[in-house]
Amino acid sequence: MAQSQIEQLDPASSTLVLSLDVDLYSRDVLYAAAYVFIDRAYILLDRDADRYMVRMRAKQKMPDETMRAMAGEFENELLAQALREQVGKANQAIIEGITALAISGATAVAESHADGPGLDGFVDDPKGLGAPWQNKEEAPEG
């Protein structure tokens, strides 16, 4: 089921070159998948006719099998990013709708605080030093 192809694998120079059809995945998916590897490899993307070329040079020397595993991981990452993109296209509007609804209600909530001290900044723990070891049920009302 592999949709990317190994064009070059050279353990001596720790270089792996993969290619994939430009129509298979969006550029966002390619970026996102490539990005995942920048801690382990130096990456240069290019295009050769109707193929995207992904040139990776491992930052540390890798044996042949590890480089093949990295090629497999890249393929897997393309899939993960493609899945994420598809779900996002289908249902990202849900997240955006909820966020818009929450923000549109902000004015009313802010006004309710005008009557007296609200909760903001009160139950906050900006330094991460809040007191532990009290059951929620026992906690005083704000």
Partner: peptide, 20 residues
Amino acid sequence: GDIVAEFCNFALANSAALRR
């Protein structure tokens, strides 16, 4: 370290971030 190769990674990461 390899300045040129690190530079390439930054160019890629920046491109991905800008597109986002």
